[in-house]
């Protein structure tokens, strides 16, 4: 590279290397500069804790959406976490390497399926089943939980597998030598040692579930209310933004960006916790 020389190359590479962090800052800057002034103007308490959302009359309370997002996400955990962790334990501790080699990429394909397709499956398959067997409109909190629970499986499984495989072999051998069965070894030794990584996988799954938009819009029904039962139609924070963004103006648009600010903060907190947990796992090694 005679044009710029070695030092020049290094400088150019370093500048491009800052692209990810500067994109992140730019995103934060623009979302916050659109949303934060609204929160101050309208009052954080009114915005976060009021129940009424009616842009036509200037009511912008997102409490029902916050509760809906929380319930949908927790429900998705109840569906996805046990299934995902069980799958991860099976694949890393009990399955033969060949099965692992085939099944792990197959499960990762679940992550590649577009979220609109999940939403569509929810509408065409899941919602009628719920409507006919349990009552209610079908498009509901429950449908959202099940679909999101499935969508987070790849995240939970692949990060849990990594952490279980990171547990040193000697731990397992020690336990087996003391006469424990393989299951006793798994649940008393291996899982305990891999705990922080498994927790990280669940938190990253939480982040994915709370941020998911299109699938939730399609299956959860979208009425603004605090859910009383799993069969109620709900609207999450993400759905609220996506549903109204195309026609919102003025205060209304600012309120949607403010909803984005809340979402951004929640996601950042979850991701920071997860990265600390993963760092703990790696530090232990």
């Amino acid at each position: 590279m005679k044009l710029v020389g070695e030092k020049g190359v290094q400088r150019i590479l370093m500048i491009t290397a800052l692209s990810a962090i500067s994109s992140l800052l730019l995103i934060a800057l623009f979302i916050f500069s659109e949303g934060l002034p609204f929160i101050f103007k309208y009052g954080a308490g009114n915005f976060l804790l009021a129940n009424e959302w009616d842009p036509n009359t200037g009511h912008f309370g997102i409490f029902p959406m916050i509760m809906s997002s929380v319930w949908v996400t927790l429900g998705a955990m109840v569906v996805g976490a046990p299934l995902g962790i069980a799958g991860a334990i099976f694949l890393s501790e009990y399955a033969s390497p060949i099965i692992m080699k085939i099944v792990k990429p197959t499960i990762e394909l679940l992550a590649a399926i577009p979220s609109v397709v999940y939403g569509f499956i929810g509408v065409m398959v899941l919602a009628p089943v719920i409507r006919n067997n349990l009552g209610g409109p079908g498009l509901s909190l429950l449908a959202g939980c099940i679909i999101l629970g499935i969508m987070i499986l790849p995240t939970v499984i692949s990060i849990s597998i990594d952490s279980i495989l990171a547990v040193p072999r000697s731990y397992r051998e020690g336990s087996l030598a003391l006469g424990a069965t393989t299951w006793q070894t798994t649940h008393m030794v291996t899982i305990k040692a891999a705990r922080s990584g498994i927790v990280a996988s669940i938190i990253l799954g939480l982040g994915r579930a709370i941020g998911e938009t299109m699938a939730v819009i399609m299956v959860a029904g979208n009425s603004v209310n605090i859910p009383n039962s799993a069969l109620d139609s709900v609207r999450t924070l993400t759905a609220n933004i996506a549903l109204e963004m195309s026609y919102a103006t003025g205060m209304h648009r600012e309120a949607l960006f403010a909803t984005g600010v809340i979402l951004f903060i929640i996601i950042m907190i979850l991701n920071s916790i997860a990265s600390v947990a993963i760092r703990n796992r790696n530090a232990k090694k």
Partner: peptide, 23 residues
């Protein structure tokens, strides 16, 4: 840089949509 990359990977697509729209 690594922290920024990890955070960026965790941001939901609706936030990218909002950002792309306003920016």
């Amino acid at each position: 840089i690594r922290f920024g990359t990890d955070c960026l990977a965790g941001i939901p697509s609706i936030i990218f949509g909002l950002f792309g729209y306003i920016f």
